[in-house]
Nucleic acid binder design. Structure first.
Lengths: 347, 347
DNA sequence: CTGAAAGCGCTTACAG
DNA sequence: CTGAAAGCGCTTACAG
C-alpha cells in the first residue's frame, strides 16, 4: 500500500506563519481573538501551502464526524435520485457530508452497511421499506440519531417521515369511481413493503366506501416497470378488460402504458391508468400520467433537516412521526385535460 | 452541542478480554499470531460490548480514509442513479464507502465540494462535463487519485472513462440516412458540455459523409425533458416538419415524444425520434425509444475499479483514457420492430 | 508472541 | 491573548 506524500498539516501552517498550532487552529476555526494581521498571516500561509484539515483527526477530537449515513433500499430510478437530491441540499446547507450506501434488500445487508459506517457518521437517514428491517433500525436508533423515511409499520416508535400513502391511494379510488369506472385493476408493490401495503389499503378503502357495483382484479408487482408490463399482458388474456388500472408506483404505470400501447389499447379511452409518486417524468409520458404527487425531494430534505436537529441537540430519543401530504394530479391518462403547466416551463 | 455517550473503545475491549490494546488491535485487524483462545476472548468481548472501530482514528494512523468522494454535476434522473449504483457496487466489493456530493454546475462549487471532502477520502470519482471544470480537476489529480467520467476535452491528460459519444451519434446519423430520412432535426445539450459536443460532432460527421441531399435544423437543449418538449413546439411552428429528430439524450427525447403526442404527430410515421443513453426506461416508452445504448452502471463500476487500483498502488500519476463503446438500439420510435427482449423479462 | 510507547493531526482546557 | 501540553482512538515499529 503506497502512501500519498505526507500532506500539509496544521503544524506546517503554524510554522510558516510563525505562530503556535493552537493559534493557527483558532484562526482557522474562527476562535481567534488576537491581532487581525496575525490571523491574516495564518490564512495566507494555509492557502499558500494548500492546507486542508484532516477530517479524521478533527472527528476524533470534536466527536463529530460531520457526515450523515444514507441507507437506501436500492439505488435506481428517478425516485431515489430525487430523494438524494433533497437530502444532499439540506446536508450541504449544514456543512455536512453524505455517506451513501444502497441496495439493501435483506435486513442483514442493512446491518452490515450500518456497521461499516459506524464511527464515521453522526446519524443515519434510513429508507428500508421492508418490514423485516425494523428491528435492526430500532436497535440503531437506541444509540444514534436516526430518521426513517417512509414505509414503517403503523405502530413504529422510530422517528420517521412517511408519505400519506393511504390518503393518496384513497383519492385515486374515489377519483376513478367518481368518473364512473366500475371495473378496476390494481398492481401492487413488493410483498412486505409497508408503503405498498398502505397504498393498497387506501385504494380498497375507497372502493369499500361506495355502494356502486364494481369489480377489482389484483395483480402482483414489485415497483419495477416490467411488473406493470406483465400486468397488462395478464389482463389482455382475460375475456374482459378492466376499464381502469391503478399501479402502486409510477414505474409500474409506465410499464403498463408501454404494454397497452403495444397491444393497441388506447389510454384513456379503452383503459385509464393511474400511478403513484409523480416522478418528474410522469408529466412527460404519452399520455401524461395521472398520479399521486409525492414531494420526493422535499421528503429527503425534511428528513435530513430533522435528523440534523437531532444530531445537533443530541436529542435522538425523541420519537416523532411526520406525515407528508400527497395530492392527486389529474393528467391525460385518466382523460383529464392535459396538464397546462407544461407550457409554462416547469421541469 | 451534546455529545453522544462516550462509546466503547479498543481500550475497553482489551481490558475486558485481559490483553493489551496492541493485542486486541491485532486480533481485530487479523494480524494476531498468538493462541486461538485469546483471540476468541477478544472477539467475544468486542461483540459483547458492541465495539466498533472509530473510522477517524483509523484513518489518522493508516493514512487511508476508506472512502471515495463522488462528485456529480447534478443528482437527477435515471442516469445518475444508474451510475451511482455501479460505483456503489464496486466500492462495496472493495470495502470502501461513498461520499457523495451533487449539483455542481459551476467550477467554484466543484472546488468547494472537493475541499470539503479533503482528508476524508482516498480518491475522487468526478463527473463534471462542463469544460470550465477542467483546471480544478487537473489540480486535484496532481495530488490525489482521480478518475473522471465522461465529458473531458479531447486532449485531456486526466485519467478518464469516456463514452464513445462520437461513434454512437454517428451511428444514429447513418441509421437515419439509411432509412431514407432527408429532413432532420437535432436537439443539443448544454453549452460547454463535452459529451453534448461530441454527440453533435458525431451526428454531423455522419451527415457530411453522405452525398444525399438533406436538411438539418439545430435546436438548443440542456439535457432536461422540457428542452425536448420545447424543441417540438418550435418545430411545429415551421411550415414543414422534419421527418426525424435526434435528441442528445433520452430525457429530451422523452420530452419530444410527449409534445409530439400532444400535437397529434405520430411517431414514427410522421416523425422518427432517437435518443442517447438508453436509460432503463427507454424501452418502456410508448413508442419504445430507439437510442444509443450506454452501459451506465458499468461505466460507474469500471471507473470506480480503476480508481481503487490507483488508490491501492498509489499510482495516481498514471494517465489513461478508456473509451466505453456504445451501440445503437433499434426500437419502435424509428419504425424498427419492437424490442422483443421485453417479453423475456428484462427489466 | 506480546506489551509499553510513540505518534497520526487536530482541538481545547490550562497556565502564563 | 497565546503557547505548551494533553488527549481523542487507533496501529505499529520497537523491545523484551
Amino acid at each position: 500500500m503506497a502512501h500519498p506524500p505526507r500532506s500539509i498539516t496544521l503544524h506546517d501552517v503554524a510554522r510558516d506563519a510563525g505562530v503556535s498550532v493552537a493559534s493557527a487552529s483558532r484562526v482557522l476555526t474562527g476562535r481567534f481573538r488576537g491581532e487581525a494581521a496575525v490571523a491574516e498571516r495564518v490564512r495566507v500561509s494555509a492557502s499558500r501551502l494548500g492546507y486542508v484539515p484532516h477530517g479524521g483527526a478533527r472527528a476524533l477530537i470534536t466527536r463529530r464526524a460531520g457526515a450523515i449515513g444514507v441507507l437506501l433500499p436500492d439505488i435506481f430510478g428517478e425516485f431515489f435520485s430525487e430523494l438524494l437530491r433533497g437530502a444532499d441540499a439540506a446536508a450541504r446547507a449544514a456543512g455536512c457530508q453524505l455517506l451513501v450506501a444502497g441496495a439493501h434488500s435483506r435486513p442483514d445487508e442493512l446491518v452490515a452497511a450500518i456497521g461499516a459506517m459506524r464511527g464515521r457518521v453522526d446519524g443515519y437517514l434510513v429508507m428500508a421499506p421492508h418490514n423485516g428491517a425494523q428491528p435492526a433500525i430500532a436497535q440503531l436508533a437506541a444509540q444514534m440519531p436516526v430518521v426513517v423515511i417512509g414505509g414503517t409499520a403503523q405502530r413504529s416508535v422510530l422517528p420517521s417521515l412517511v408519505v400519506d400513502n393511504r390518503g393518496g391511494a384513497r383519492a385515486v379510488g374515489e377519483h376513478l369511481l367518481t368518473r364512473g369506472y366500475q371495473t378496476l385493476a390494481f398492481v401492487g408493490g413488493p410483498a412486505g413493503n409497508a408503503d405498498a401495503s398502505a397504498r393498497r389499503a387506501g385504494f380498497l378503502h375507497a372502493l369499500r366506501d361506495t355502494s356502486q357495483a364494481r369489480s377489482l382484479i389484483e395483480l402482483p408487482g414489485d415497483f419495477h416497470q416490467q411488473a406493470g408490463w406483465d400486468a397488462i399482458r395478464q389482463l389482455v388474456r382475460r375475456p374482459k378488460l378492466p376499464r381502469a388500472l391503478f399501479a402502486a408506483n409510477d414505474a409500474m404505470a409506465i410499464g403498463a402504458l408501454s404494454a397497452l400501447h403495444e397491444a393497441g389499447i388506447r389510454v384513456p379511452d379503452d383503459m385509464a391508468v393511474v400511478g403513484f409518486d409523480d416522478i418528474p417524468m410522469a408529466r412527460f409520458l404519452a399520455p401524461s400520467l395521472t398520479t399521486v404527487h409525492v414531494p420526493i425531494a422535499t421528503l429527503g430534505e425534511r428528513a435530513m433537516m430533522r435528523l440534523l436537529e437531532g444530531v445537533r441537540h443530541g436529542t435522538h430519543e425523541t420519537v416523532f412521526r411526520e406525515v407528508v401530504p400527497t395530492s392527486l394530479v389529474h393528467r391525460a391518462s385518466t382523460g383529464a385535460h392535459v396538464d397546462s403547466s407544461l407550457s409554462r416551463g416547469v421541469a
